[in-house]
Design a protein around this nucleic acid. Structure first.
Lengths: 128, 128
DNA sequence: ATTTGTGCAAATCGTTTGCATCTGA
DNA sequence: TCAGATGCAAACGATTTGCACAAAT
C-alpha cells in the first residue's frame, strides 16, 4: 500500500483487510460500509468511496462492467470474466480457464488495451 | 411495434423513429429527450425512460455494459462489441467482424446465454 | 367503456463535494 | 509541522414514483 503511494491510514488499512481478507469478491460502497460497521470499524461512507476509488486507481480493485445504478468493485484484478444473471441482477465469476478472445481488431493509434471484459448474460431457459 | 405488444402511441412512435432513423447509436435518456425536443416532439422525460425500458424489454434496444451513473442504450442489438476509451468515458463500436470468444464454459443448469458483451478497455499508450 | 400511457412534480438513491477537524510522516 | 485524510451534512444528478388526466383499443 505504501508502495502505491497511499498513506496507510487506519481506515484504509481496515478497509483493505475487509476487502482482501475473504477471497475474491464483488462489492459495492454501501456493502463495504456496512461490513466495516459490523466489524466495529468506524469509517464514514465518504471515506469508503474515496478508498474504493483510490484502490482502483492503483490497480488493487477493478470496476465491474455492469449497467445499473450502483458501482461494484471486484477484488480480483486478474484476467477473468463474468456471468451476469439477468433475473437476479447478479454477477458470478467465470472460473479462470481457457476463455479466449480471438481476432480482436487493432486498437486505434496511440491507444493500448488496458484489459478486456467479457460478460456472458444469462437468462432462465425459455420453455419451447 | 404492435407485434411486441406495445401500443403505438404518438410518443413511442416518435421516439422510435428518432432512435432508429439514424443508424446505430449509443444514447442516454437525457439525450433522447433533448433530441425529441429539438425535433419538436413534446414528450416528458419520464415517458422517455419508460419507452427506453420497454423497447429494451422487447429486444429493440440493448443496455450498454458500462459502469457509471448514466445508462446508455444501443440501437444495434446484433452481435457486436465495444471499445471503451477510458480517458473520455466513451464507447465505440468494434466493427462487425471476426471477433470470437472461444472456450466459454457451459452456462449453469436451466440457464441460457442471452448474449455476450465484450468491452475492450483502451487507454492512451504509456510512454516507456 | 376500459385499459394503458402520459406528464408533472415530488421523492428516492447512489455518489460527490465543501469545509472544518484530525493524523500520519 | 503540515500535506494529506477523514467525517459530516448538504448538494447533486440520474432515475423512479404517485396520481390526475388523456388517448388507444
Amino acid at each position: 500500500m505504501r508502495a502505491s503511494g497511499l498513506r496507510p491510514t487506519r481506515q484504509r488499512v481496515a478497509l483493505a483487510s475487509l476487502l482482501f481478507g475473504h477471497g475474491d469478491r464483488h462489492i459495492s460502497a454501501e456493502e463495504l460500509h456496512e461490513e466495516a460497521a459490523a466489524a466495529g470499524v468506524r469509517v464514514s461512507l465518504a471515506t469508503v468511496y474515496n478508498a474504493l476509488h483510490q484502490f482502483t486507481e492503483v490497480g488493487m480493485l477493478r470496476i465491474l462492467p455492469i449497467e445499473g445504478a450502483k458501482t461494484y468493485f471486484d477484488t480480483n484484478t486478474s484476467d477473468h470474466h463474468h456471468f451476469f444473471l439477468e433475473d437476479e441482477n447478479r454477477l458470478v465469476d467465470i472460473p479462470e480457464g481457457p476463455v479466449t478472445v480471438a481476432n480482436l481488431p487493432e486498437p486505434p493509434e496511440g491507444m493500448e488495451v488496458a484489459h478486456v471484459d467479457i460478460v456472458v448474460r444469462l437468462r432462465p431457459r425459455r420453455p419451447r
